[in-house]
Design a protein around this nucleic acid. Structure first.
Length: 724
DNA sequence: CTCGCAGGGGTTTTT
DNA sequence: CCCCTGCGAG
């Protein structure tokens, strides 16, 4: 029996849910009930008998989104064992390759390399292919990834190469792929690319997987890249039952190969596509929607679509400027503190977004000063911590003894006298005798140029690993992890470190993750555990934030919503980022990112920036982001920093702000320039930080070396410019 | 072979 | 500011 609450759907949502199978494009604005439409549509397909659950594949962007959709579906479909296959692109591809990768000469235990591992392999390739004028490893890695995102094989890349550099990179790409194959390893992009190669070259395998995708639904379609696009088309080819959902205004992964044209041109690919526009927003206030709209309307690459809401008007968007990032952060923390006190809000109702991870530090410090519990989503991921990666390297070798990159890491953690030279010997022996590096490690004593001591150490390690490898199939993952931590000496070696406790806790956390995996009882072994770790996404951890305020990058914010949202660092060069300043296309992407961030807010939105910001050790003056100027001024409330406010004493309400909402942002002018050094009769030397207003009412914020920040009316201030 | 230190270089976003 | 690399000493 269907449990759809059809009466809750608006007409467009209703039409999208009940549209007949075939090509369907759902343009879903921010907060327009997209997930509900998607899950209802799936439930309806099952309920009406148009498709069996086994025929349906829904692809999302993050594991979290997939988990959420599965959960919602299990509430809609009576038979919980018959919930359709809901997965991310990467996980789905990993499953396909584990099963059928043999056709590409990979066995089912292939390793999944993260970016650092992949870079290490590229460094090795570069070392072997010595030639003058080699491109930097990082560049090679980026170009190879780009090629894979566009579904270019090494030979196609070589054919299209313009100039020697591109041709050389194409050669390195070929060598890199070869090395990955001998290691039985794939990088992230390979998961997609190799799946495409597999399905493209093996029609009978394709047909088999098409059966799982007789109804194919793709979420976040605006962020699919070329390979994902090709995969979706290919899987849907036999039935054409392809339903894509997305919002071109929320396409923010161009740098990762996402091609906004995939969604813009869907109707060209499928001329008979039915198109539905979800334009009613159920999330935000009218003010927030209007502010976000005034920003995004400056983009040209978009479909005709207007978001609206029946919600209340709400409060103005608050725009605060701090002198430095510290003041900006104190304001954010202060507001959170005040709102928690006044409004019965809880820390979990707040989120702070920023463009770059490095911005989190100042904000964290301010939250700590105010004792507001917070949680940073993303940043250095747990599984990227050194000691965790060290332990995982053993597990990866156990699962896949061909994984030389992990073996290199493993033998050095803790150091046991096996270094670069010995590893070279291992690698040479492995290829000469056509055995895995792990087996080669056990035969080092036959090699004359390796010291006996070293060979003995290697052989001891080998013997234990082989023994464990033999017992492994009957052990829970947790026991394997525990034995590795203890027997390898890794846990003990941490004792010598200054932060031993923290690092040991991380190993404990890994043990806990293994226990949880065992408890799920999916029948998976070490390979599946490692795959899960490789493919976890930062947003997957948000649930762990439990009650705390959240901090994350704008990219991570997609798909989330919070009552109160702060976007910090609204400054030229930071947001939009200076790396995106080259082209209008990239600026448009930054603008979409701004739009995504703003539309996460339900009730209240804060935009903040600074007059000067420290980056890479030097302090630079900053200018407001162009996106601020794009927001209708009537929607904004300007707030300036209060001077000399001690951070730990909450000020009285009446003294909270200096409101200068009537002042304008002025360019340099009227006698003093921002950044100029000046002398004041009473306050002494200082630097002009900001100039506001015009004519006789022109005021300047001046940061005095001794007296601190002052707001002065220029007409009376008698400022005298001085040389540095 | 490992470790510690100095110096240089690079700094966005992440499945 | 942080990370990586290269180099010299133990």
């Amino acid at each position: 029996m269907l449990r759809l609450k059809v009466e809750d759907l608006n007409p467009e949502q209703h039409a999208a849910v009940f549209a007949e199978p075939g090509p369907v494009l759902i343009l879903a604005g921010a907060g327009s009930g997209k997930t509900r439409v998607l899950t209802y549509r799936i439930a309806h397909l099952v309920d009406s008998g148009k498709a069996a659950p086994e025929d349906i594949l829904a692809v999302t962007f993050t594991n979290k989104a997939a988990a959420e959709m599965r959960e919602r579906l299990s509430g809609l479909i009576d038979d919980h064992r018959r919930v359709p296959w809901v997965s991310t692109f990467h996980s789905a591809c990993a499953r396909i390759l584990r099963q059928d990768g043999r056709a590409l000469e990979f066995n089912r235990d292939f390793s999944i390399l993260d970016e650092a591992d992949s870079l290490a392999v590229i460094r090795q390739v570069l070392e072997d292919a010595v030639a003058p004028d080699m491109p930097a490893a990082e560049l090679v890695r980026a170009r190879i990834e780009q090629a894979k995102n566009e579904a270019l094989t090494p030979s196609v890349m070589a054919d299209r190469a313009e100039g020697d550099r591109d041709a050389r990179i194409a050669e390195l790409y070929a060598l890199y792929q070869e090395r990955l194959r001998t290691m039985n390893a794939m990088d992230f992009s390979d998961l997609l690319m190799n799946t495409w190669i597999l399905l493209d070259s093996q029609p009978e395998i394709l047909v088999r997987w098409q059966r799982y995708a007789r109804m194919l639904l793709v979420d976040e379609y605006q962020d699919t890249n070329r390979v994902q696009y090709l995969l979706a088309r290919m899987l849907a080819d036999s039935t054409r039952n392809l339903c894509v959902v997305g919002d071109e205004d929320q396409s923010i992964y161009r740098w990762r190969g996402a091609d906004i044209r995939n969604i813009l041109d869907f109707e060209r690919d499928y001329p008979d596509a039915k198109v539905f526009k979800l334009e009613q927003n159920y999330r935000s206030t009218k003010t927030i929607i209007a502010a976000a709209a005034s920003v995004i309307q400056n983009n040209t690459e978009r479909k005709d679509k207007t978001l609206w809401t029946a919600n209340e008007i709400g409060d103005p968007v608050v725009y605060f400027t701090g002198l430095t990032e510290r003041e900006e952060a104190d304001f954010v923390a202060g507001e959170i503190g005040l709102l928690i006190g006044d409004q019965a809000l809880r820390p979990r109702d707040f989120v702070v977004f920023y463009r770059t991870n490095s911005q989190s530090r100042a904000i964290e410090e301010a939250l700590v000063r105010r004792r507001i519990p917070y949680y940073v989503v993303g940043g250095t991921r747990f599984y990227d911590r050194r000691e965790v990666k060290d332990l995982l390297s053993y597990l990866r070798v156990l699962a896949n003894p061909a994984d030389f990159i992990s073996l290199e890491r493993m033998v050095g953690a803790p150091s046991r006298g096996i270094g670069g030279k010995t590893l070279e010997a291992i690698s040479a022996l492995a290829s000469k005798q056509a055995i895995t590096p792990l087996d080669a490690m056990g035969r080092l004593e036959t090699i004359s140029n390796v010291a006996l001591r070293t060979a003995k150490a290697a052989s001891a390690l080998y013997t234990w690993m082989r023994d464990l490898g033999g017992r492994m199939p009957t052990m829970p993952v947790r026991e394997i992890v525990a034995e590795v931590a203890a027997q390898s000496g890794l846990a003990a070696s941490l004792d010598a470190l200054p932060d031993a406790n923290e690092r040991k806790q991380n190993l404990d956390e890994l043990l806990a993750a293994a226990s949880a995996f065992d408890a799920e009882n999916t029948g998976g072994g070490l390979t599946e555990f490692l795959e899960r770790i490789a493919l976890v996404n930062d947003t997957d951890q948000i649930d762990e934030a439990a009650g705390r305020a959240s901090l994350m990058t704008l990219h991570t914010s997609k798909g989330l919503e919070y009552p109160i949202v702060f976007i910090a660092g609204m400054e030229e060069g930071l947001f939009p980022h200076s790396r995106s300043a080259d082209s209008e296309d990239e600026i448009e992407e930054e603008r979409r990112l701004c739009y995504v961030g703003m539309t996460r807010a339900r009730r209240l939105l804060y935009l903040t920036n600074t007059l000067s910001r420290e980056m890479f050790g030097t302090r630079n003056s900053s200018r407001p982001s162009r996106f601020l100027a794009e927001i209708d001024g009537a929607l904004l409330r300007r707030i300036a920093p209060e001077r000399n406010r001690p951070v730990l004493n909450t000020p009285a309400l009446s003294e909270r702000y200096i409101d200068y909402s009537d002042s304008q942002l002025a360019e340099d002018g009227d006698g003093v320039a921002v950044g100029a050094r000046v002398m004041h009769p009473t306050f002494g030397r200082g630097v002009v930080r900001r100039v506001e207003g015009r004519g006789s009412s022109t005021k300047a914020w001046v940061n005095f070396d001794q007296a601190g920040l002052k707001l002065l009316v220029l007409k009376f201030a008698n400022l005298v410019p001085i040389a540095e």
